[in-house]
Computed example of a mutant assay.
Amino acid sequence: MTSDAAFTYNGGKVAPGERQNLRYGISETYLGDPVRIPVTIVNGERPGPTMFLSAAAHGDELNGIEVVREVAFEWNLSELAGTIVCLPVLNVPGFLTQQRYLPIYDRDLNRSFPGNPTSTSAKRMAHAIFRNFIEPCDFGLDFHTSTRGRTNMLHVRADMGKPRVARLAHAFGASVIVDGAGSDGTLRGEATRADVPTITIEMGQAHRFERSLIDDALAGVESVFGEYGLRDHDLVRWPGWRTIVTEKTWIRADAGGIVDMHYERGSLVREGERICTITDPFKADGTPVRAPFTGVLIGVLENPVVYPGNPICHLVDLDEETARIVERRQSNR
C-alpha cells in the first residue's frame, strides 16, 4: 500500500512534506497530570508505505530507543517516499522508573495490545498507542532486548507463515529468524493479526546502550527501507548466513551455584561441548553444562548465579552446512 495523504491521529495530522514531534497523552498520573509518549512522524513528499518503529515497550530495554532516535533525527529523510512513525519510548512510566513493567499494578504493556479503552490502565494505554500510531501503518519494527541478567544476540522474531511478515523479516537481514506467531497481547502479534505485518528485533541486554548492536540494527532498518523503497539509495542486505528456526531450547541449570560461561552470545557450539560450568563458592564439584545439539547461542546468562531450573542460555539448532559457514566466519574474526 502506498499513500500520498496526510497521516492522521486523534488530535492532529501530518501532511506530506511535514515532520511533527509531539508528546501524546495516553493516561494520567495519580495527580491527574498527563502521561505522554514521545512520537516523531515524518511524512515524505513522495508517496510510499507507512512504517512504524517502536521501542521500550519494556521500560528498561534501551538499545532500541537509540535506533529509533537515530532514524528520526540523524538520517537524511529529505527524499523519504512514504511515512515513518517513530515511537522511541512506549512504556514511559516504566522508563522513568527503569523497570520492565508498568509501575501501575506491575502490568506488562507488551501483553496488553491491542488494548481496550474501558479496561485496565495498561490496556487503555495500549489502546491509545495502537489505534493512533500502529493500526494506520503498513508494517512495523518493534525493538526489544533481553530481560535483566541475560543478553541476546541480534535476531528477529516473526510469524514466517505469513508471506508479508516473511518478506519484512528477510528484508531486515538478520542471520537468525525465530519463527512464531507471538503471544497474545504482544505488539507484533496483535499488529500482525490486525493486518500490519510486524517483526520483533531482539538485541542485547537491559539498561544498556550497546553501540555495535545499535549499528547492526540501523543497518537492518536501512535494508528494510531499501526493500520497500522508502529511500532510493538503501540496499537490501544479505547477512552472510541465515537460519529460520521453529524450535528453540532454553538450557537450564541442574545445580545451584556460580556460572563460568565458556562462550559468548552469538557463538557456535558443537554437540557435546561444554557451554559453561557451575561451581560452588569453593570452586569444587564443578557441574558441566553441555550442548545437546550443534547450534548458536542467541541468548546467554549475564548474572552468573543460578538456582536449579534457572535458564542459562538459549540455543537454536543449525544444520551442518550452516554450522560450517558460521564456524569459518567466527574463526576469521
Rank of each mutant, 00 (worst) to 15 (best):
V156A: 07
T186R: 08
D184R: 14
S175V: 04
L168N: 02
A174V: 05
R157T: 10
A169N: 10
G180K: 02
H170A: 07
P163V: 11
V176T: 11
A158P: 13
S175Y: 00
G185S: 03
R157P: 07
K162L: 15
G180H: 01
H155A: 06
H170R: 15
M153H: 14
T186P: 05
L168V: 05
G173Y: 08
D159S: 08
G180E: 01
H170T: 12
A166C: 12
V156F: 04
M153W: 14
D184S: 12
V176E: 00
V178G: 00
S183I: 01
A169W: 07
A181N: 00
A166W: 12
R167M: 11
R157H: 11
D179G: 00
S183R: 07
M153N: 10
A174D: 05
A174Q: 05
R164P: 00
L168E: 03
K162V: 15
G180V: 01
H170G: 00
V176N: 03
F172R: 04
G173P: 09
G185P: 09
D179E: 02
H170D: 14
G182Y: 11
A171E: 06
L168R: 03
V178C: 02
A181P: 06
D179A: 09
S175A: 12
A171G: 09
D184M: 12
V178I: 14
V178D: 00
T186L: 03
A171L: 13
V176H: 01
G173T: 13
K162F: 04
P163L: 11
A171R: 11
G185K: 05
D159T: 08
M160Y: 09
D179W: 01
K162E: 12
S183Q: 09
